[in-house]
Design a protein around this nucleic acid. Structure first.
Lengths: 198, 198
DNA sequence: GACAAAACCGACTGAGTACTCAGTCGATTT
DNA sequence: AAATCGACTGAGTACTCAGTCGGTTTTGTC
């Protein structure tokens, strides 16, 4: 790992767990064993360091998405939904620190007046919500899901998974323990309603 | 409004939207038109000011809960669920700044090594999640809901509502627009499965 | 080995920041 | 009229932190 990568990684961990403002450049120095000047040699400001972290996270998330969903076939929309939730859990395990960071407000705050930051965040969230929208459309196409408005339903699914992850971040509940229950709940929520005629 | 209340209110708004570390005591002075010393006369430190805010939020939430749910009868668990979600949306409108603040990490961070703060947060989250647990138990008692593990189901419901609210806080989606769809989704998720025999 | 460029170092700067404290002022009590 | 009180003031203090700059080391190339 190059020194630049080490700095970015250390900053990711520290920003995620201590906060942006709460992390000093000297904290990053201590962890990586570099001098302050070195950080500013590679990243021209603390803000640019954060943006580099977000860009890297975006790139990795899009890559993981490609390998997980490109050229895949699913038995039904409901099965694809299960796969999508599993992918989300897998991703948050793989990129734990990055997701903790994304759950914080400072990236969204920076996004308000920094278009580069805004673009990275938008790419990440579009990718994550589009997965669920694709799921709903696929389920409706193959008849395994009811006729619900796709975008809104996708946002509800995303809110469920993301909300559950937040409980973990805030030490309120161990999200992983609810995986099976979550999938079962989503199946009942999305399945085509059986009409009473029989 | 007394000066002390004005300071607490201004701090709530500023902490919620700018962050704790990012808000200076001088910011609060400007908004309230007081001198710096006055803040420290009423609250012995910046941290104690935050704790006072959380205590006040806790008190109000518990009060609102009392008036909304004490001595109420519901036609069924499913109807009570709808009422619970409506209550949550109502509350987040009423105490917008407090909820934005609760969605931030710094209260949870302070809670780690401040037992007073931890107690206030625990009281708030226990109240909010207990509502949903009561809903599930009531629904199972009257037969309108399936036989799902109550605590886990309550956490999923809470994650849905809280996750949706977060989308709003992060400017990703207007949560209110999904209220009807959310309620309908939860009904399908919780309703007793009709077995195929007929 | 010579040389340039890239990478790295760490003491230093100056703009803030939380908190203090001696003192003001109007109201109430003695 | 004197004494007491408590809310409030704002300049001062000790300290922190992002960012700079002049210098040193490492690396790649001929």
């Amino acid at each position: 790992m190059t020194k630049k990568e080490a700095i970015r990684y250390a900053a990711t961990v520290l920003f995620a767990h201590k906060g942006f403002q709460e992390t000093t450049m000297q904290d990053i120095c201590k962890v990586t064993g570099t001098a302050e000047g070195t950080i500013f040699y590679h990243f021209k400001s603390k803000e640019q360091l954060l943006i580099a972290i977000l860009e890297h996270a975006k790139t990795r998330i899009l890559e993981e998405y490609e390998t997980a969903f490109a050229d895949r076939e699913f038995a039904s929309g409901l099965d694809m939904m299960e796969e999508a939730i599993a992918f989300y859990f897998h991703l948050t395990g793989l990129m734990e620190h990055e997701f903790t960071l994304l759950q914080r407000q400072f990236p969204h705050q920076l996004a308000e007046d920094n278009s580069e930051c805004r673009a990275h965040l938008a790419a990440i969230y579009n990718c994550l919500t589009d997965i669920f929208e694709r799921v709903v459309r696929a389920g409706q196409a193959d008849g395994s899901m009811g006729d619900f408005e796709p975008r809104g339903t996708a946002m509800i699914l995303f809110a469920m998974v993301d909300g559950l992850l937040r409980l973990k971040t805030c030490n309120l509940y161990e999200a992983g323990a609810l995986f099976d229950q979550l999938v079962a709940s989503c199946r009942r929520m999305l399945a085509k309603p059986r009409d009473g005629s029989c």
